[in-house]
Write a protein that binds this DNA or RNA. Structure first.
Lengths: 207, 207
DNA sequence: TTATTATTGTTGCAAATGCAACAGTAATAT
DNA sequence: ATATTACTGTTGCATTTGCAACAATAATAA
């Protein structure tokens, strides 16, 4: 039994607007959805499209900390105490609902029957986010670039063992926290070993 | 304003037992608190002591994914879809409360006034956990072992810029996902650079 | 106490990695 | 249509890293 099925998420979206204070907004490619700021505590919920959580340190190195898709949540609440700059950037057309944190923790004025269900769904969405973070940590725990690439590809390939690079190899290198040139080099080696077949931005995983 | 202060956590612990079905248990050093198992969905809350989330892959390599302390939560819900083995191991004497997941998502029988407040506190504890995971991802995003060490030390030093190795250098190497011998080598280099001073298991951060 | 096991500290070496640089191509803006 | 910018693919090279091995010390068990 999946805890977060389509029906429940649909209900969640419906209830949200009738209970808590929400704002919906559409972003286009590479727009800034939110930058870390401690001022307004809010939770974002992606109803359509994709986005990246990007970190830039003071030397200017950017890394992609996470990638988000439909039904994922994010929040500036998750990025406190960091010395670097955190941005959330849309990747193509992306629709986001913003939920005010204080609306969640306080019962809504109308004492509506939806509030409890909303909090529980958010709770499960948080657990889902937590799970995805653990997958990222597991990816980064791999010792070599080869291991990282294979883990990444297996995680994302479709039922035909195909992975298509929809972003760029540059972005994948940033996501894996490895040097881009080295990513290309290792991809070639892995192909020579017969573990993958690659044609430009289409990769078939054979192992 | 901190969302999770002592008063609120105390209240949380009190309410828990009167509302949902909880079990409390004490573990001693290096005992298995929980292993990943999809059978029973439960959330653990550490009321005393420390623990580690440890992963072992099929080659037998173990890595420390996270370290947990008092007032941290963990759950097998966070580790689904993993092909490796995940364990939570106590680090010294550790007291844990286990909360049944279904008790949380269903309103309790008595429809008690505490349930809502418990869910909201768990919600904030989840956010806190999320934040800690992001810190770990940030740590792992560092390119070199030197950067990892310095980030790790600065994160954990006390007000006097002192960090004491309470576990072992082996454990730290596993936490940073780097080779132990290389950790020692880099520590020496960093000391020669004048960034730290080290005497056995006490490190003073100078930079 | 003594034996056994785990951790620390060190080194040589091979392999992996990041950096810099550059040409070629693709995508985007003017 | 052309100019400009971004991405791909590749390579040489210096540096970083992990691995293996070993002695010394510390911690734990018998």
């Amino acid at each position: 039994m999946k805890t977060l099925d389509e029906t429940r998420l649909l209900q969640f979206k419906k209830n949200l607007s009738s209970c808590v204070n929400v704002k919906s907004k559409v972003f286009y490619n590479k727009e800034l959805i939110i930058s870390y700021s401690p001022i307004k505590k809010k939770i974002g919920f992606i109803t359509k499209g994709k986005a990246n959580i990007v970190k830039t340190d003071k030397e200017g190195n950017t890394t992609i900390m996470r990638d988000l898709k439909e039904n994922d949540i994010f929040s500036n609440l998750f990025f406190q105490n960091t010395e670097d700059e955190i941005y959330i950037i849309s990747n193509g057309e992306t629709k986001v609902i913003f939920i005010d944190y204080y609306n969640i923790i306080k019962n809504c004025n109308q004492n509506c029957p939806f509030h409890n269900s909303i909090v529980l769904t958010l709770f499960d969405l948080l657990i889902e986010d937590n799970k995805q973070q653990n997958e990222k940590i597991e990816l980064l725990s791999k010792r070599t670039v080869e291991e990282k690439i294979l883990f990444f590809l297996k995680q994302r390939m479709n039922k035909n063992n195909i992975f298509k690079v929809t972003t760029s190899y540059k972005a994948i290198a940033e996501y894996l926290f490895v040097d881009r040139a080295n990513l290309m080099r290792e991809l070639k080696k892995i192909e020579e070993k017969g573990l993958i077949e690659r044609y430009e931005k289409t990769i078939k995983i054979l192992s």
